[in-house]
């Protein structure tokens, strides 16, 4: 066997991985709740990307003639204590929330997978030490560890992202390690090693690619937890700082204005619908993958 045949094997693995993801996505669209979740999340992502065109007003624009105005044809979700349009702020708030979730889960996925891959591939004392550290981090309730990290680094948008990424790293590391252990000793991996492929090459091209799709699916399952953590940090005043609009901070402001309920109801509804949709996707993926497992 030559290196050319290994490369063609890599390409086949890559194609298989992409094909699997596409199939899972296709089946998700046939799962009733999964499809609803997917449609809502895609709509939210699009409205976040095109926020300046979707939102009727600038989120920081003050309407002195309409302070604390109730929902109306002009201000769909009403206005806040400074006369800012809540609908526009919810739309722009989705940018921050989705950005934090995407970046932090993406970073956690990359770092956690790399740790799990290395730990599972090499085994031995590296594995034991790394996994004990991961277990230690997993012992913390997610929000408690995130709070501690944000407290140490100072409350702002970047640190909230970093904290959410760090608290999710152990979950990805554990999952990846488990997956790696199940493929590490398969024939094609042994063959690649016997042919003299470097550890890095075997880890990245042969082992990594074959566990990638499960990790990506798991990332979608962690997204709703990340969104709740981000909103909780913002609610406690430890997320993105004013004037950046976030759903959590808008809700926290709403706590001081109970007589103007729209101030808190709509940002909370946005969080609720997002989390519910992400959970729908997660459930759909789980059902899809479970039925595939039973088919095997």
């Amino acid at each position: 066997m030559t290196s050319a045949s290994i490369s063609s094997g890599d390409t086949a693995a890559m194609r298989r991985s992409r094909g699997h993801l596409r199939r899972v996505l296709g089946e998700l669209l046939h799962h009733k709740l999964g499809a609803i979740g997917l449609v809502v999340v895609v709509a939210m992502v699009l409205s976040a990307i095109f926020a300046p065109w979707v939102a009727p007003f600038d989120p920081a624009e003050l309407h002195y003639d309409a302070v604390l105005a109730p929902p109306s044809a002009r201000f769909w979700f009403g206005t806040d204590e400074l006369g800012r349009d809540i609908f526009s702020r919810v739309i722009f708030g989705s940018r921050i929330s989705l950005e934090i979730v995407a970046v932090s889960i993406g970073a956690a996925m990359v770092v956690g997978s790399a740790i799990g891959l290395t730990s599972g591939y090499f085994g031995g004392w590296v594995d034991r030490v790394v996994m004990r550290v991961m277990d230690g981090m997993l012992a913390f309730p997610v929000l408690v560890l995130a709070l501690a990290i944000v407290a140490a680094l100072g409350p702002d948008l970047f640190n909230a992202m970093l904290a959410i990424a760090i608290v999710n790293v152990p979950n990805f590391a554990r999952l990846t390690r488990g997956q790696v252990l199940s493929v590490r000793n398969l024939d094609y991996v042994q063959a690649a090693t016997a042919l003299g492929a470097s550890h890095l090459r075997v880890m990245a091209r042969h082992v990594g690619l074959n566990v990638a799709d499960n990790i990506i699916v798991y990332a979608s399952l962690r997204a709703s937890t990340a969104l709740i953590t981000e909103s909780s940090l913002s609610f406690l005043g430890l997320g993105a700082q004013p004037p950046i609009p976030t759903w959590g901070s808008m809700l926290a402001t709403g706590m001081d204005y109970f007589d103007w309920p729209w101030m808190g109801i709509f940002p909370g509804l946005a969080i609720f619908v997002s989390v519910l949709s992400l959970n729908f996707i997660g459930d759909g993926l789980r059902d899809t993958l479970d039925s595939r497992l039973y088919e095997r």
Partner: peptide
Amino acid sequence: GMALPFFWLGML
């Protein structure tokens, strides 16, 4: 129930 954020439900 599982998707309701604690702080929102508390506020409601």
